[in-house]
């Protein structure tokens, strides 16, 4: 297992470097001149040239790339033009809000999704199963920015059950009251993000559970006289989780991308909102920094997925 882990870690290094190079090139490919935005439209040509020189943007591309690589590797993701702060400190400021939202929606979508998936696989032709199937199809197909706005309209604007936007109320709160306030703000964005993932997991788990329940070792588990609860949740689910874990890892990247829209709709002060604002302001260092940061997060997530995969399936661990 440790050998396997070592090799996976080693593989992650060139991947990470590649991502950084790609980020650099992508930003240079983007239309629009950052100097024009930074200096303002009415600035003089001399000022723009000076700025270009100061920022090193007059150097040939390879030189810029090497400088960029060097600074990223030393932890310097750049300096935000629009927010006048280092990108790294911006990312670290916004990270907790995003992690909170992500944790809440993963908890909700994985636990509920797995449970619904198992139930509908075990009893496929009941009313509850059919409702869950239609519901998951809906959750799977509704775009999150639209769903978010509808939730805001119904539960915040009409019913006043939940706040409109933000992560905290304007009043200063401390201790338990503060966290209760955050939780209250958390409900709608969590539901919005979870709808897709919940549906995804419910459908995935149902499909792989139905397959697992058809296996011969389920017959022998029942033949041992194990109660169906153990047959389903121990023998079948453990096998059914393998494909689910794979998709989970692959989907984390897409999920992070979805945060850009959902955080914007809900005014959630996280990384997604930061990215959106940076794109609007053409704040290239922030966009680039976010790119690198999110890519590394995805690489890390995939690494964790592989480790998890090995933990579930011994055949992979010892291969």
């Amino acid at each position: 297992m440790s050998r396997y882990l070592f090799w996976r870690l080693l593989q992650a290094i060139p991947l990470s470097l590649g991502v950084i190079v790609l980020t650099f090139l992508l930003i240079r490919l983007a239309p629009g001149d950052p100097i024009a935005v930074l200096a303002g439209e009415r600035s003089t040509a001399e000022y723009q040239a000076q700025l270009r020189k100061d920022l090193g943007l007059d150097q040939p591309l390879p030189v810029q790339l090497v400088r960029y690589l060097g600074s990223v590797l030393s932890g310097n993701l750049g300096y935000s033009f629009s927010l006048q702060q280092s990108v790294l400190s911006l990312v670290l400021q916004r990270l907790p809000a995003t992690l909170l939202l992500m944790g809440a929606s993963l908890l909700l979508s994985v636990t509920l999704g797995v449970w619904i998936g198992v139930r509908t696989a075990v009893r496929p032709h009941t009313l509850g199963s059919n409702v869950a199937t239609v519901g998951s199809l809906l959750g799977y197909s509704l775009p999150s920015f639209w769903l978010g706005q509808i939730l805001i309209l119904v539960f915040a604007v009409w019913l006043h059950w939940f706040p409109l936007v933000g992560m905290t109320s304007l009043v200063r709160l401390t201790g338990l009251a503060y966290w209760a306030d955050v939780a209250w703000h958390l409900v709608l964005p969590t539901l919005t993000i979870s709808a897709f993932n919940l549906a995804l997991f419910a459908r995935l788990v149902r499909a792989s559970m139905r397959e697992a329940l058809e296996q011969d070792f389920i017959v022998s588990a029942r033949g041992k006289g194990l109660p169906s609860r153990i047959v389903v949740y121990r023998h079948a689910l453990r096998n059914a989780l393998l494909p689910v874990v794979t998709i989970f890892g692959l989907n984390l990247g897409a999920m992070l991308a979805g945060f850009v829209l959902v955080e914007t709709v809900f005014g959630w002060p996280g990384l997604g909102r930061l990215t959106f604002d940076a794109i609007a302001a053409r704040d290239y260092p922030v966009i680039g920094g976010m790119f690198v940061f999110l890519s590394e997060a995805v690489i890390l997530a995939n690494l964790l997925t592989d480790v998890l995969y090995g933990a579930i399936d011994p055949r992979i661990r010892y291969a």
Binding site: R222, G225, R315
Partner: peptide
């Protein structure tokens, strides 16, 4: 469920598929 495995039990044809691979 209480009878299976306790009072009557079965040996199956294929030892490759009737054992759970992850336990």
């Amino acid at each position: 469920t209480q009878v299976r495995g306790a009072r009557v039990a079965m040996v199956y044809q294929d030892p490759y598929t009737f054992l759970n691979p992850v336990f």
